[in-house]
Design a protein around this nucleic acid. Sequence first.
DNA 1: CTGAAAGCGCTTACAG
DNA 2: CTGAAAGCGCTTACAG
Lengths: 345, 345
Amino acid sequence: MESAEQVQQSVRSGRITAAMVAARAGVSTATVSLVANGKTAGRVSEDNIARVRDAISELGYVVDGIGSSLAKGVSSIVILVSPDISNPFFAKVIAGVRESLGADYQLLLSVTPAGEFPQAGDVRKLMALRPAGLLVGAPNAEFLDDLSAAGPVVLLDAPGLEAYAPSVNLDVAHGARQLAAHLADTGHRRVAYVDSVTGTATFAIRRGAFLDEAAAHGIAVEPGHIISTTIDVGASAAAFAAAWPAWQQAGVTAVVCCTDTHAYGVLQEARVAGVQIPDELAIAGFDDLPYSATSNPSLTSVHLPATSLGLKAGGQLRRLIEGHRLEQPQLTLESSLVVRNSTSA
Amino acid sequence: MESAEQVQQSVRSGRITAAMVAARAGVSTATVSLVANGKTAGRVSEDNIARVRDAISELGYVVDGIGSSLAKGVSSIVILVSPDISNPFFAKVIAGVRESLGADYQLLLSVTPAGEFPQAGDVRKLMALRPAGLLVGAPNAEFLDDLSAAGPVVLLDAPGLEAYAPSVNLDVAHGARQLAAHLADTGHRRVAYVDSVTGTATFAIRRGAFLDEAAAHGIAVEPGHIISTTIDVGASAAAFAAAWPAWQQAGVTAVVCCTDTHAYGVLQEARVAGVQIPDELAIAGFDDLPYSATSNPSLTSVHLPATSLGLKAGGQLRRLIEGHRLEQPQLTLESSLVVRNSTSA
DNA sequence: CTGAAAGCGCTTACAG
DNA sequence: CTGAAAGCGCTTACAG
């Protein structure tokens, strides 16, 4: 039982506390806690369970997250950190994460300016929330070195970084190679590449796999024909506009972009410049965003399973948080090329 | 000073606590708290301030968010609730919110299945995190009635709901009227409308303003020519495919969609069906997403200032959280029509 | 099966 | 200007 004054005080604050539930049910707060957390097995009588349940629903009691977190040493918050969180690709990833995490965990997104990772100080502030777990999207080694997070971590789309933590990867190399082969088949011999400034592993692999396979097919991608911009339609459009005259002169007939968002910018600017697509210039991207089917022309893209990525990563993290071992700490999801009109009329 | 055992225990957990800082600086935890929170004015000697600062940086101390929140009664988390959070429109809103909130507050997104508001139970769980404030996007009255949140709240894009809380609105009606006038000018007399299933106020206003102005211009929008889907390219495409034969027979020559995302679906399906755009069918949307300039054909849309919406809303909330009064509790941002090829060849 | 008590890490009157 | 102490709301050994 709690003291009458204590209960009275909580009443005034408007917040329903465990003490109020305890007073109403005629038990201790310890019992309330046990019932509210479903830890009654062999520890609380049926009678008291019913009593407490009734009091909880009558009062509309919800366990206070802050008090609970402090006592447990960890909160129910899962933090998702990614340099690319406002890309529409991530909307689906987030939906997948949310679904697999269920109602017991809250999703906190670390939002940074496009393409940037949070600074060390930001991360520490996030850690001060004592997250139940951490999801890190498309990281680079440097960021992971700085991270030093205690507790469960799962990486998303982090090829080559499996040593740091369990991860769910996308086989972007496969799609990249398909794309190189497709361009070779359609007669391209000089190709430009628009990369991201992020410098994360997934982009390095996309580029590396594409360049390797391109070379194997006799396609030339000169160093001067590789540029980088943030993941932003406008930035990409501007960069392409600046580069195109030289590329055109050098005989470039195709541009591969590391994301569809980049590709939309190139598409936009190429159309403004009156470039014929795909006859004069073929364009392709990665991600296969929902808009790539309706762009003008529709965009050839390496399809990546975003929802599935979120679902799997959330599921793995949840297992980790709940103390299970992962049967498969490394998962890889398939990618594949979707050919549309921007490379093949 | 803290007891040696206490400090020793914290050392073992790996977490740097105020007690450890206090021990190192030779002061009490109260002084550490004052310094860490910048509340030293007239309360801590210069000498001790320097001592504590040194200890903080030497140890890498970060105030524990959970402990701090419990003591203060409120956390540094700002929750953003919106039925439409994975729409690319919201990516910019989120970026704006993040920027105006600054580094002192963490943004927690309540992610629900497309177009749905969180259930009452979900909201209560979020409230148990004791948020510093709440941002509610595109709400309906029912949700706000249920909400009963204590503490600062700012509504985004909530026309007609100004009575509930300070809000930042978009003058969607203005753009909607411009769109109706534009369609009338280009000769359309029978128009269909694709609405959202969400039933939120902003969509009701978009539709209402459009229908009113359309009627004033002699445009007929029959009740049977108004359909609703979730904010999803595929759902919208399917709904349009089902509706189009009847619309075509009835002489419909234009479709207005309540979001660009809906419009992309209509565009996609219309092209598959071989419908000539805009000659046979004009299509327009709301939001002016970045992809609307590159779609095929490019999409006429009512431009809404997403980044600015987030910036203003975050700014208002921050002022509220910090105890200031709002000089202008109601803000309205402009919208305007951007005409592109989907309505005008 | 049950409750009193300690403790999670911090902040804030309070007394000095 | 400073520190001891109470308190935020909960959970968890512990003793019974």
